[in-house]
Design a protein around this nucleic acid. Structure first.
Length: 294
DNA sequence: AGGGCCCATCGCA
DNA sequence: TGCGATGGGCCCT
């Protein structure tokens, strides 16, 4: 827990485009995490990020549909433990009711297909990836698409080149074309909750090894507002001793947020890790708890 | 084909 | 806390 706090504090170095809602949220989350022991009052957090309490309140309502207090509550370790503890029951129940897969209330509906290594490496010359940066509730997002659908979502914390290198390095043989106009509809579909609809599922292509694809597909089964654990996913895949391998595969998920790797926690409820920063993972979980209660 | 090393894990002393 | 087991991915021979 203490280590986690230290790790979070260390992330403060990275700047994010100023003036956006997420910039305030990020700083609030960092501050609250760094001072969780004291349980700071909302007034103090607002002052820290440079807003009046009422502006702070308003911003959170706009950003997540939550009051700052509820958001704060959603970030506690106990709450995370609850997410994990309840997840299997809820998941089992929804499976029994036939509600799983591409048909859950209030979730981002994702229709996926898989592209195995053989398919994209050997024929790799053909893979064209269009990319562009877009504002999102979680900062500046890098969106990548193939003709078959969304293949990548990453985030920039002030260094677009680094974010691009991170994503592009995953498919070294592909041809990359900057094309904001064609990535824009994907960004809106993914990040604007009003556009989430079963009639208009987000088309996604999973590019990875067979094992990675099995792990990523299982992430799509975790309902919004819930969480699962690495160990439990391993068990569900029929490989109960492969929790760590699951962790590695989750960490390689190229389609951040849309394939909800942020909904995987350690068995203790600890956040463990997130490729794009633990602060962002917390923000996503808090934001989603607003989506569920809305 | 196989060794070595990394990893967003876990459980036990 | 600290450590060993663990499975997959990647890079090197």
């Amino acid at each position: 827990m203490l280590q986690e706090t230290i790790a979070l504090a260390a992330e403060q170095a990275a700047p994010v485009a100023a003036g956006t809602d997420y910039d305030y949220v990020r700083r609030a989350v960092e501050f609250m995490t760094a001072n969780w022991r004291r349980h700071p009052e909302v007034e103090e957090v607002a002052a820290h990020v440079g807003l009046s309490p009422s502006h702070f309140h308003h911003l959170f309502r706009r950003w997540a549909g939550l009051s700052p207090n509820m958001f704060l509550q959603a970030l506690t370790i106990d709450r995370a433990r609850d997410l994990v503890r309840n997840s299997s029951n809820v998941l089992d129940a929804s499976l029994e009711l036939g509600l799983s897969g591409p048909g859950r209330l209030h979730d981002l509906f994702v229709q996926h297909e898989a592209m195995s290594p053989g398919e994209w490496k050997i024929g790799g010359a053909g893979l064209q990836i269009r990319w562009g940066f877009h504002e999102s509730p979680f900062g500046r997002a890098l969106v990548m698409t193939t003709p078959r659908g969304l293949c990548g979502v990453g985030f920039s914390d002030g260094d677009d080149r680094a974010a691009f290198a991170d994503m592009a390095g995953r498919w070294p043989n592909a041809a990359f074309i900057e094309d904001v106009a064609s990535t824009e509809p994907y960004a809106r579909r993914a990040f604007e909750r009003e556009k989430w609809s079963p009639d208009q599922p987000l088309r996604v292509v999973l590019i990875g090894t067979d094992f990675q694809i099995r792990v990523w597909e299982s992430l799509l089964e975790i309902p919004i507002g819930r969480a699962d654990t690495y160990a439990n996913i391993a068990r569900k895949l029929g490989q109960p001793t492969a929790a760590r391998a699951v962790g590695a595969a989750v960490g390689r998920n190229p389609i951040s947020f849309c394939v909800p790797c942020h909904r995987v926690l350690g068995k203790s409820g600890a956040l463990t890790g997130y490729h794009w920063g633990l602060t962002r993972k917390q923000a996503m979980l808090g934001w989603e708890s607003g989506a569920v209660s809305a």
